[in-house]
Simulated scan of single mutants.
Amino acid sequence: MPIRKIIMHMIDKKPDGAPAVLHAASELLLESQSNEDLLWRLNESYNAKQGKAWGLFHAESGAHPLRGWLSKYIADEISFQEFSLVAVEHLQHLMEESNLAIGGHVLFVHYQQGMTEYLSIAVIQQSEGIAVGEDLRTITAKYLDLDHLHLAGRINLSEWQNNPASRQYISFIKGKNGRKATEYFRDFIGCQEAIDAPGETRTLLRAFSDFVENEDLPEEAAREKTRTLVDYAMSQTKLGEPIILEELSGLVDEDKPRSFYDHIRNKDYGLSPAIPADKRTLNRFQRFTGRVEGLSISFEAHLLGTKVKYDKNDDTLVINGVPTLLTDQIKRASLER
């Protein structure tokens, strides 16, 4: 991940209503292994976060000026240091307005991953830990706490510049610090949420369940394809990349690589060609199976409570929407008796 530009400012803001104090860096950070390690750790922590929001820029305005400043940087009208300075001053102003805001080190990094360029912005807190000095004595040392990242966003610059129709080139953490904290950082970036990642992921899983049912696959084949889908989706979340439906389709069925993709298109599930995966939804996706005395039952976990209902008092399952093939067999068997 080559770093193009990287700089770090500091906003000293206490949650006691005192004014925020900006300590601005006058120059970019120099190329170093520690900066490479910092970016790697930042991406690792960011990608692992659940519940991120996805969207696109608002139109440039006084309330959402970041887009305009970023455009000037991309066009070489201002330097990266100048861009980061006006941006961090705007962030400081928003922090002043928020009694919930806590300062920290504000990192701006423009980097490239593969053929794609990104801009990441993160507010990182400092923590204290115990280290061992050269004299083998323990010392208290401060470090950037990337394990507890709450305010961070990432802009896919290549997607923004080259795909005007895209509605998911920005992502940001919807943290656990409350809606107001999330909103003030979202407004700082100038992002309007446009993609419901949990909803899109649930729709994808529903489409997959329908596909498996329509194909009337053997149980072992269905389990294997389920593992393939989940493994691929999880690997994309670790990379911070969306699920590419055509790519997924090729993995789900190597002999007929477009079959799942065509199923999605023909049934009109309303999915985009690339969707951000929601890790929490994927974690809940599994297959319940059971076999006893000639009876074999298997269904996806997310169908429990909708298509499949369990009555624990009677220890019974009620299935809504019985597969047509099964219904036809039962009807024929009933007529023969």
Results as ranks from 00 to 15, higher is better:
residue 159 E to L: 12
residue 168 Q to T: 07
residue 144 L to P: 03
residue 176 K to D: 15
residue 177 N to T: 06
residue 160 W to A: 09
residue 163 N to W: 03
residue 170 I to R: 00
residue 168 Q to I: 05
residue 154 R to W: 04
residue 176 K to P: 10
residue 142 K to M: 08
residue 156 N to M: 07
residue 149 L to N: 11
residue 147 D to S: 13
residue 162 N to A: 07
residue 158 S to M: 05
residue 170 I to K: 00
residue 178 G to H: 10
residue 143 Y to F: 15
residue 169 Y to D: 01
residue 143 Y to P: 04
residue 145 D to Y: 00
residue 145 D to E: 09
residue 162 N to H: 06
residue 149 L to H: 11
residue 179 R to L: 06
residue 144 L to E: 13
residue 173 I to R: 04
residue 164 P to R: 08
residue 175 G to M: 03
residue 171 S to N: 10
residue 145 D to A: 06
residue 164 P to V: 06
residue 154 R to H: 06
residue 141 A to K: 15
residue 159 E to H: 05
residue 177 N to Y: 10
residue 170 I to W: 01
residue 161 Q to D: 12
residue 167 R to D: 15
residue 153 G to L: 04
residue 152 A to H: 12
residue 165 A to I: 12
residue 178 G to K: 08
residue 174 K to F: 07
residue 155 I to T: 02
residue 171 S to E: 07
residue 173 I to Q: 05
residue 147 D to H: 10
residue 165 A to W: 05
residue 180 K to V: 09
residue 154 R to V: 07
residue 155 I to A: 01
residue 164 P to M: 08
residue 142 K to I: 00
residue 176 K to R: 13
residue 160 W to M: 11
residue 167 R to I: 15
residue 169 Y to I: 04
residue 155 I to E: 00
residue 149 L to K: 11
residue 179 R to A: 10
residue 173 I to L: 14
residue 161 Q to G: 05
residue 148 H to A: 12
residue 163 N to G: 00
residue 163 N to Q: 11
residue 147 D to M: 10
residue 176 K to Q: 15
residue 179 R to Q: 07
residue 157 L to R: 04
residue 181 A to V: 14
residue 170 I to L: 15
residue 150 H to M: 10
residue 156 N to Q: 07
residue 177 N to S: 05
residue 151 L to I: 06
residue 150 H to K: 12
residue 181 A to L: 11
residue 144 L to R: 10
residue 141 A to G: 02
residue 163 N to L: 09
residue 178 G to C: 08
residue 168 Q to R: 15
residue 157 L to V: 12
residue 145 D to Q: 07
residue 174 K to S: 15
residue 168 Q to G: 11
residue 155 I to N: 00
residue 160 W to K: 09
residue 180 K to G: 08
residue 171 S to P: 03
residue 168 Q to E: 14
residue 153 G to K: 02
residue 154 R to E: 07
residue 158 S to D: 04
residue 142 K to Q: 13
residue 154 R to S: 03
residue 146 L to G: 00
residue 174 K to A: 14
residue 169 Y to A: 02
residue 157 L to E: 02
residue 146 L to M: 13
residue 145 D to T: 06
residue 177 N to F: 08
residue 143 Y to S: 03
residue 156 N to T: 10
residue 165 A to G: 09
residue 181 A to W: 00
residue 151 L to H: 07
residue 149 L to W: 12
residue 150 H to F: 15
